[in-house]
Amino acid sequence: MTTTDDQEFREIESAGAPTRFARGWHCLGLLKDFRDGKPHQIKAFGTELVVFQGENDGQLHILDAYCRHMGGNLAKGQVKGDSIACPFHDWRWGGNGRCTGIPYARRVPPVAKTKSWPVLERNGQLFVWHDPENSKPTDEVTIPELPGYGTDEWTDWNWSSIVIEGSHCREIVDNIVDMAHFFYIHFAFPRYFKNVFEGHVAGQFMNSTPRDDIGIGSSYDNPDSRLESEAHYYGPSYMVDVLRNYVGDRLVETDLINCHYPIDNNSFVLMYGARVKKPAGISDERANAMAQKFTDGVKVGFEQDVAIWLDKAPIDNPLLSEEDGPVYQLRRWYQQFYTDIADVTEDMTKRFEFEIDTTRAVESWQAEVDENIAAGRVHRAAR
């Protein structure tokens, strides 16, 4: 607190963004975008990576992008067999990081090895494991398999990405406990809201309805619809949101992915995608159009968030009301991914549950909505 002549007021505290990158699985995008026979350069974790698919083994591999021989950029080279060839001197590097051949040399130096990054292919997406301690990922912290992926029951992913400059990726994680912003930023009306943290998983359970004082722009957003959402972060950067939207007597089931990876300490790539369970009697074309429309709506929502992140102050000591949710508990949970494994404490991983009493919020927001309608003030929800 700071004291002036007539009052005390709270100062904003901020220690700055973490100087290390989070331990955990990070999604880099859709598998199909990397399976084209070409090397792909990814700027992540303050360095450069190269992703390539072996011609023979068919596997995706991730290495440091710069050749350990003379620093050539492997992402500018060619895939040759199951190796990536440097464009500078044609040194070949296998998926395990070992040099597999030097065309002009009699032998490969025994120490010729570069960094190979652990890879996971799951749910049609590519993941890379990052840990400054170079630990190996375990089954306990893996990414769950989504039911029905790859079957005719569901559409394929409708996928988008955006680069966020000037903000740390921890800003997006705060949203999982932030009930109130759904009303003011996203024009939703939370009726039930609960968080559960345990181990490497942070969950959000929310039931909501559309606001009556907005212009409806999506076929999902029937004024009489209701949405049940169960969202879980699996590790520091990959969230699966299972959505059940009830529109009259129809149920629309959607899986939303919200994920990111850091470029550096002050920028990150935000990706999101949706798939829809095909309702009975709906053509593939219609189901894909539904997924596209839903993703378009999600895009607007993320753009609304981004506008806030880029114009807000980072704050380590937020001043909270009871209805603001367990922000400090979430941040303790999140801290485990920026801490050496030996230093992770019980309060970062033990089970924690918190349900917000929405009674006051619902009464206040309903009064605001009624007043807006009476005054003819209608918000337009761009979709």
Rank of each mutant, 00 (worst) to 15 (best):
D5Q: 12
R10Y: 10
A17R: 05
A17N: 11
R20G: 10
G24S: 08
C27L: 10
L28P: 11
L31W: 02
D33T: 08
F34H: 02
F34L: 04
F34Y: 14
R35T: 15
K43A: 13
A44D: 00
E48V: 04
L49M: 04
L49E: 04
V51N: 02
V51C: 09
N56L: 15
Q59E: 15
Y66M: 15
C67N: 01
G81H: 05
D82W: 09
D82H: 08
S83M: 09
C86Q: 06
H89I: 07
R98M: 04
Y104N: 14
A105F: 03
V108N: 00
V108S: 00
P110Q: 00
K115Y: 06
S116A: 15
R122S: 11
N123K: 03
G124V: 11
Q125S: 11
N134I: 05
S135I: 05
K136C: 12
T138M: 06
V141T: 14
P144A: 05
E145R: 11
T151L: 02
D152L: 10
E153F: 01
D156Y: 07
N158Q: 14
S161K: 13
I164C: 01
H168M: 04
H168G: 03
C169F: 13
I176G: 04
M179Q: 08
M179E: 05
A180K: 13
I185C: 05
F189L: 08
P190N: 01
V196K: 06
H200Q: 04
H200K: 02
V201I: 13
A202S: 12
A202T: 06
M206R: 00
D212T: 02
I214W: 01
G215L: 09
G217K: 05
G217V: 06
S218V: 09
S218Y: 06
D224H: 12
R226N: 12
H232I: 11
Y233E: 10
Y234G: 08
S237N: 04
Y238W: 11
V247N: 09
R250E: 15
R250A: 15
V252E: 12
T254I: 15
N266E: 12
K277R: 14
A280Y: 00
G281I: 08
A289L: 10
M290G: 00
A291W: 10
A291I: 08
F294D: 03
E303G: 07
Q304C: 05
D305F: 06
V306E: 01
I308L: 11
I308W: 07
L310I: 04
L310Q: 06
L310F: 00
L310N: 03
D311Q: 09
K312F: 10
L319K: 01
S321C: 11
S321F: 13
E322V: 12
E323S: 09
Y328H: 11
Q329P: 02
L330R: 01
R331I: 03
R332T: 15
Y334H: 12
Q335G: 08
Y338G: 03
D343A: 12
T345G: 07
M348A: 13
R351S: 02
A361R: 10
S364P: 05
S364K: 11
W365I: 10
E368W: 11
V369W: 09
E371H: 13
G376Y: 01
H379V: 12
